[in-house]
Write a protein that binds this DNA or RNA. Structure first.
Lengths: 200, 200
DNA sequence: GGGTTGACTACACGATTGTGTAGTAGTTTG
DNA sequence: CAAACTACTACACAATCGTGTAGTCAACCC
């Protein structure tokens, strides 16, 4: 996003800068002037192209969602992943994910809709794979939230690991740790029933 | 926190109001004037008692951390949980958790330290229970982050479930769904190895 | 070639923010 | 009883915010 930035139109540079700063600092935490400075333009131009901060955010929401779905489609469509190096993908996809999660937390309808679609997908996937939790919807929602948790708490997780998980290597590490969570059963179904009764 | 609020000192009311609003809207999202209004005092009194917004936040951090550790100690100490009704505990503990997670995300050292202590505890617990992930530290960090994920994404999870998870009933539901995630193995160790090799 | 359009900047506005100051009422202390 | 202190409010200040306005410059159209 650095060398190629000079080739982009000012509008695209503003949008990319907004996605970066909104994702890092939150919507309220990044001002129009900050974004303009990051994109190397005047603050007036942001308004000229997008109208208002809320409209800029909407544009970022739609762009990030579309881009992520596009990347997801390319990843699942080709089974062999030809030409799609996960390592090369990271610098593009990671800021988009960061932005979407943050925008979601700050009340974005578009990003929240993406989350709900994710829950639907997880629920359908689990049912297709013969996974039968007692609360399929709750199970799917929990899984979807988990997928985003390390993204949200990236600073804390990085500190705990002594390794920056925003780098491809660190992200890979925590991703594999997450998979181990899904592999090692911590509780037996009997233990769950016991707790369930306790709380009732 | 409603009827008893009148009996509290103004200082305590301010602190409780700050924990509530900071937790709901984030640190930047809640102004001194908002907090003062919530506590029913003038904005000047907030400054009088706490000095600055940052100092107020520090006081909230320390109070919330101490209070949560106190509750945790009471819960684990007495095996029979005498006198500690989980349902009665929820209105007290939930806002504290919400605040701590939010403060953590907004860069609080105290809250982050609490997270790291949690990771340590999870790691020690896993080792004691004979759970041997390939990356014990990463595993523990992932588990700790997961525990907080549904708290952070409470609006989205609530929407997915059609049920407010900030209520005791809703919180109980998503808590049990989370436990099911830890119960049902989604991947076999062989599948993990396969993915691990693919990504290298 | 004059006129319109779009990209872009500079500057000013009202609102809100955290913070600072001055002052009042009530209690405590010597 | 006077002095000092504490809890508390009212008001002002500078900075920052999103937004609005005016204007420059180049490309394009008739």
């Amino acid at each position: 996003m650095d060398r190629a930035a000079e080739d982009l139109t000012a509008r695209a540079r503003i949008r990319d800068a907004a996605i970066k700063l909104f994702g890092e600092r939150g919507i309220e935490g990044a001002s129009i002037r900050d974004i303009a400075a990051e994109a190397g333009v005047s603050s007036g131009l942001v308004r000229h192209h997008f109208g208002s901060k809320e409209a800029l955010r909407d544009a970022c929401d739609r762009y990030a969602k579309e881009r992520m779905m596009q990347i997801g489609a390319e990843l699942t469509q080709d089974g062999d992943l030809t030409g799609l190096d996960p390592l090369a993908l990271h610098p593009i996809a990671f800021p988009l994910q960061l932005y979407l999660v943050r925008s979601m937390m700050d009340g974005s309808e578009t990003a929240t809709a993406l989350f709900l679609e994710g829950v639907d997908a997880v629920e359908a996937w689990a049912a297709g794979y013969g996974i039968t939790p007692k609360d399929p919807r709750g199970y799917a929602a929990a899984l979807a939230a988990i997928k985003l948790s390390v993204l949200i708490l990236r600073d804390q997780v990085s500190k705990a690991l002594g390794e920056d998980i925003t780098t491809p290597a660190g992200y890979n590490r925590i991703g594999q740790a997450l998979m181990e969570v899904f592999t090692i059963p911590l509780l037996t179904p009997e233990q769950i029933d016991k707790i369930r009764k306790q709380e009732k």
